[in-house]
Nucleic acid binder design. Structure first.
Length: 879
RNA sequence: GGGCUCGUGGUCUAGUGGUUAUGACGCUUCCCUUACAAGGAAGAGGCCGGUGGUUCAAAUCCGCCCGAGCCCA
């Protein structure tokens, strides 16, 4: 029996453990008779390199509410958990933890260390997640680096290759010279750095033809002079148009480069003439591709100068910069030099400015199918709908195919070898996967193209997104059946997945790539619906970040508040909108827990062990009213949760429970039970209370389980409230209007007492009500301590004075258009006439009918006592 | 620099063309009524970011500006 104050710490831990022990949330495959009764949730697996972040908690609470709610709708929920340990984050973590460098180890050896380090962090992560009691199926977990996933990832690569959706091409890659690794765009960030601008004189090769002997370019990267492949002028730059089509000679190095017009030149910077190198920045790459320029690689993998730098070869790029500037100065080509601060693209993990390197890369062809991917996006239900536009605009703005190769030591290897003679690619056999070409042999003895028998293994690994975009297939157990010669799924009922919950920050790459991959492999859209949560901000609406020191730690919150309070806070968000962390939001949750606990104690003390058997017809008017209202509330909450409108469900249920049930109904019912041993009230209390626990269960998962088990558990087995069915409507008829009026009368009497500073249990000797409250008279009398309560058959003695006219503008507006202002003015001046017993209003030359206006009256009671207005009813109090 | 989204009492939030803008937290006053003072009752507090426009009518639709978040360059 619930007693004493609610001890959230003990209760929450108890049920978290019990749910695990009982496998409460395990996917019960046997109970799925057709795919429609399985509800599969595919969450993007978090990287485990860091600790659990408050954002994880927020997002997971929302998913968990959906999972719990959907279980109660009779669906078998598949809610797995993945750990994304295949990626640079876990490599860096391993290096940091063990104080080692990946370069010093063989790939397999380093990967082994990664897995050991990650395993520790994953255990901690799991423990943290479990301490929030999420209804995740902990028997269904996966790691993106595990062999089964490696096999799926390599199968995906080979399948796309066989479909002709992949190709290999030499292309620039972003490279970190410090970490000596290729990195992806998302791993870079902008950094303000001090640098120098240099004005450097270039000679024109044919000065006569150009009409000038030299010109000036401005650059922050003079060490790239040896890599210069062109000089650009803006097509609108009239002063320098004479140079276009000419050739320039690069100072110190002497090679000639073309001068070309291109509108990507920033005319405002320096002289407006710019050199293009291999490669200084993104624009250089675009120029290289657009104008088919030469490649002159001047900086190598470790950030040192190559042979194209002549005498500077072997120097670090920083040393080379100083030396080249000094030599330019000596030859007179350095015209000017001044310090500036500018934005540099750096590697987010080490802060080193990135370089660009040219390497063979594998690409997934996407640009040819963007229409299909757009259509796939349209076929999914988006919560909220507006987030589809992010997906849409991302696809519309796509300019490149997807580069999936990374020049890294750790990760999932490409299952590919190349013929040493003709460079033809040889794929692994599907049955042999996963393979590592560095240690495994190719499946053929001789090149199918040229017959050569020496092969070079591919030593690149997959971009992590190439694997983490396969989670729906990983979850459904996608595999290649060698005998049948086709792809199969262990759990085909799970695919397509019903729900993809995730943050809006990863729509453009993660969600998009997942749609692309799954669509290409199966021809189906992988998700029925996508639910996008916003970001968690700090109390001042600022983004949480380690450097700002405003990060909220989940364990600190847990030390301070119950998990259910955090769930209440999270459920207060409008889906897709950012949500600031607010302690008062959690405190409000805590108060609701107390209220629910205390109300449950009261209900428990009022109701017998076994629910009384009562026919609906025997229920009192108030009880019928409460149950009918609760039917409507349950339906409202169901509909809102189905549409992922969490805050509407939460707020509506909270105020119905607190206001209507506790403040209005319970106050009356407790008197009826105590004073009259009222069976109808006892029955209603039990039925309503059970239902409240179920309706609250998806959000307040721990406390509802505690109370449910204390009060309503039956038999010997454990049946969680979270495995019960969402309450069916009782279908009880009630006089809705009379109930509303009765509650309004109670409210008016409360106000009467409050305004006179009377205690709420003060006696009132006589009260008359003019209004429809049939069946509720006794309830009003008892709860408001009224000695004599009578209902009036006719209106009390009232003098009414017309105080104004209210127009129904939704009818008047469209009907009278521009004349509305005249009508308003006429009423304002009092120049109107009410005719036909109030049926017609004559004003400003128009005759308005009864549905277009209402007469505003002030009613004054002239009889004995004081009159109160309660909605439609009139209440007269004689003390 | 571009795109998307958001901006409503002190704080958080509902409201997507109809004039009287929702609720919560906080605040003020009153009430220790045996479930709950982390409670109950009442009350104060907002020209709906700014500006211009469309309309009989704008928090709501459109343009521009400002601020915030995310993505991209």
């Amino acid at each position: 029996m619930p007693s004493g104050p609610y001890d959230a710490d003990a209760v929450e831990e108890k049920w978290q453990q019990r749910w695990l022990d009982e496998d409460t949330y395990a996917y019960r495959e046997g109970e799925v008779d057709d795919p429609n009764t399985a509800f599969a949730i595919d969450t993007p697996p978090p990287t485990v390199s860091g600790s659990l972040h408050w954002g994880h908690v927020y997002g997971t609470v929302l998913q968990d509410i959906v999972a719990r709610f959907t279980r109660m709708q009779g669906e078998e929920v598949y809610y797995p958990f993945g750990y994304d340990d295949n990626g640079i984050a876990s490599e860096r973590l391993t290096e940091r933890e063990l104080d080692i460098r990946h370069q010093d180890y063989e790939r397999k050896e380093f990967q082994q260390k990664c897995r050991e380090v990650c395993a520790e962090f994953e255990d901690e992560f799991t423990e943290n997640m479990q301490s929030f009691g999420f209804s995740i199926d902990w028997d269904n977990t996966y790691r993106t680096i595990e062999p089964r996933v490696q096999r799926i990832s390599q199968l995906s690569f080979i399948d796309l290759y066989e479909q002709g959706k992949e190709y290999r091409k030499r292309a620039p890659a972003i490279w970190c010279p410090e970490c000596e690794t290729a990195i992806s765009q998302v791993e870079t960030e902008d950094d303000e750095q001090d640098s120098h601008f240099h004005d450097i004189a270039f000679d024109v090769v044919n000065a006569d033809s150009a009409g000038q002997e030299e010109f000036t370019i401005s650059t922050t990267r003079p060490e790239l002079l040896p890599a210069c492949v062109a000089v650009f002028v803006h097509p609108d730059d009239e002063a320098n148009q004479n140079l276009v089509g000419q050739a320039a000679r690069v100072p110190l190095f002497g090679h000639e480069v073309p001068i070309i017009a291109d509108e990507r030149v920033d005319m405002e910077t320096g002289s407006g003439i710019v050199m293009s190198c291999t490669f200084g920045d993104q624009t250089d790459i675009e120029w290289y591709q657009a104008h088919d320029l030469d490649l002159r690689v001047a900086i190598d993998e470790s950030g040192h100068m190559t042979e194209v730098a002549d005498e500077y070869e072997g120097m670090s790029s920083a040393d080379a910069r100083e030396a080249i500037v000094a030599d330019l100065d000596e030859t007179g080509a350095l015209l000017d030099r001044w310090p500036i601060t500018h934005t540099v693209n750096v590697h987010e993990r080490c802060g080193t400015g990135v370089e660009f390197l040219v390497a063979d890369q594998w690409y997934v062809e996407m640009l040819d199918s963007t229409d299909e991917y757009l259509e796939a996006g349209r076929e999914m239900d988006w919560y909220p709908e507006k987030m589809f536009s992010r997906y849409k605009h991302w696809i519309e703005g796509l300019q490149w195919d997807w580069c999936i190769s990374r020049q890294r030591s750790s990760g999932i290897p490409f299952p590919v070898w190349y013929c040493d003679e003709c460079d033809g690619a040889v794929m692994a056999e599907k049955a042999d996967l996963p393979v590592d070409p560095l240690s495994d042999d190719p499946p053929v003895d001789a090149c199918p193209e040229c017959g050569h028998d020496e092969f070079v293994p591919e030593d690149d690994v997959f971009d992590t997104w190439a694997t983490s975009s396969l989670t729906p297939l990983i979850n459904a157990g996608w595999d290649w059946d060698e005998d049948a010669g086709e792809f199969t799924m262990d759990n085909p009922e799970l695919f397509p997945m019903d729900l993809r919950p995730q943050g809006h920050d990863i729509i453009s790459f993660w969600l998009f790539h997942t749609v692309v991959k799954c669509y290409e492999h199966t021809g189906e859209v992988p998700f029925d619906s996508v639910m996008i949560n916003g970001m968690v901000l700090d109390e001042n609406r600022k983004k949480m970040s380690k450097s700002k020191g405003n990060v909220v730690s989940p364990q600190e919150v847990k030390a301070q508040f119950p998990v259910d309070a955090a769930r209440f806070w999270a459920a207060g968000s409008s889906i897709g909108d950012d949500l600031p962390y607010q302690e008062k939001g959690l405190r409000a949750g805590e108060k609701l827990l107390q209220k629910l606990w205390n109300a449950s104690k009261l209900v428990d003390s009022l109701t017998p062990e076994t629910t009384p058997e009562i026919d609906d017809e025997e229920l009192s008017a108030l009880d019928r009213w409460l149950l009918a209202e609760l039917d409507a509330e349950a339906e409202f909450v169901r509909e809102k949760l189905e549409n992922r409108e969490f805050s509407k469900a939460r707020d509506s249920l909270r105020s119905f429970f607190w206001g209507t049930f506790c403040d209005d109904y319970l106050e009356i019912a407790k008197q009826r039970v105590r004073e009259e041993d009222d069976e109808s009230a006892k029955y209603t209390l039990t039925v309503a209370h059970r239902r409240f626990l179920q309706l609250f269960a998806p959000v307040l998962s721990h406390i509802t389980e505690e109370i449910w088990q204390e009060m309503y558990s039956e038999g010997t087995g454990f049946e969680s409230v979270h495995r019960t069915a969402w309450p069916e409507p009782t279908g009880i008829d009630a006089d809705h209007a009379a109930g509303e009026t009765a509650m309004a009368v109670v409210g008016a009497l409360r106000r009467y007492k409050s305004e006179r500073q009377l205690p709420l249990n003060a006696e009132l000797s006589a009260v008359s009500v003019y209004g429809e409250i049939a069946g509720f008279e006794n309830d009003i009398r008892n709860v408001m301590h009224v000695d004599r309560l009578e209902t009036l058959e006719s209106e009390p003695e009232i003098e009414s004075v017309v105080t104004g006219i209210d127009l129904d503008y939704s009818i008047v507006g469209p009907e009278y258009g521009a004349d509305v202002s005249d009508i308003d003015a006429g009423i304002e001046r009092g120049e109107y006439e009410i005719r036909d017993d109030g049926e017609t209003l004559a004003v400003a030359g128009h005759e308005l009918s009864a549905d277009e206006f209402s007469v505003e009256r002030e009613r004054q009671y002239t009889g004995e006592g004081e009159m109160l207005e309660a909605d439609d009813a009139l209440v007269i109090v004689r003390e």
